[in-house]
């Protein structure tokens, strides 16, 4: 199976030329070892009650389109990965992050921080209630805009398989203009980052639902 991940160097994304490693990666002859083939253990007691509901972390309801985002974390053979930590962060409905360095002159929402986390259940399922994030401008090139996205961080079963990625929404007209989404050359591989509107996940008269499964990379066998 070919490497699905983007290259380090992708010049249209202007932060890569000075940060991409320039020397070839070294493949350890005997493969990773026991530490690298395992992952930290997180417990439910470590999470807060509203960590998975980004609409209930403040006194009032955030502005914007309430959505449910859910899916399963799977290993490379399709087995669910239970009890793994999934973290998300995102802009608010106006396309503004609460982060101090975000200078986009769009309003902050006092009722929305935009950060959440949860552990997957026995079926590998995660579920967040949140607000659909807005598109936002950035300084990569003239008139650069990011398609709406939610940042995801997933642990999985091996430290070296750890995944940080971004989930997008179906049919976004900004896909063609975004060098981060565009860092993946293969159209089929790009589609793996796009969630699916799912009417069964949707709660009538309350929130639209999106489904997005996350498939972690294969782990080399310890004896290979």
């Amino acid at each position: 199976m070919s490497d699905p991940h983007p290259p380090y160097l992708h010049p249209p994304y202007q932060s890569t030329p000075l940060r991409a490693p320039s020397r070839p990666l070294i493949v350890p002859a005997y493969g990773p070892d026991a530490v690298e083939l395992s992952s930290p253990v997180f417990g439910h007691s470590e999470l807060g009650t509203f960590d998975n509901d980004l609409t209930r972390q403040h006194r009032g309801e955030p502005l914007g389109e309430r959505i449910i985002v859910t899916g399963r974390v799977l290993d490379s053979s399709g087995r669910p990965v239970p009890n793994t930590l999934v973290e998300v962060w995102q802009a608010n409905a106006s396309g503004r992050y609460i982060h101090a360095r975000d200078q986009h002159p769009a309003p902050l929402d006092p009722n929305f921080t935009g950060a959440g986390r949860c552990l997957t259940d026995a079926d590998g399922r995660y579920r967040f209630v949140t607000i659909k994030p807005g598109a936002y401008p950035w300084r990569n090139h003239h008139n650069a805009w990011r398609p709406a996205h939610i940042h995801f961080s997933v642990f999985g079963t091996a430290f070296t398989q750890r995944l940080v990625t971004q989930m997008y929404f179906p049919g976004d007209p900004l896909f063609a203009y975004d060098p981060i989404f565009g860092s993946i050359a293969d159209e089929k591989v790009k589609e793996r980052l796009i969630s699916r509107l799912d009417m069964d996940t949707t709660v009538p008269e309350w929130a639209l639902g999106y489904q997005w499964d996350i498939v972690l990379g294969a782990i080399p066998a310890e004896d290979s």
Binding site: A100, H151, T165, S183
Partner: peptide
């Protein structure tokens, strides 16, 4: 046949969420 989810950058704005 499962298809690995590709990586994307952590970006500049994780500071209020991950640390």
């Amino acid at each position: 046949m499962n298809e690995t989810t590709p990586s994307q950058t952590v970006g500049p704005f994780f500071g209020y969420a991950l640390p």
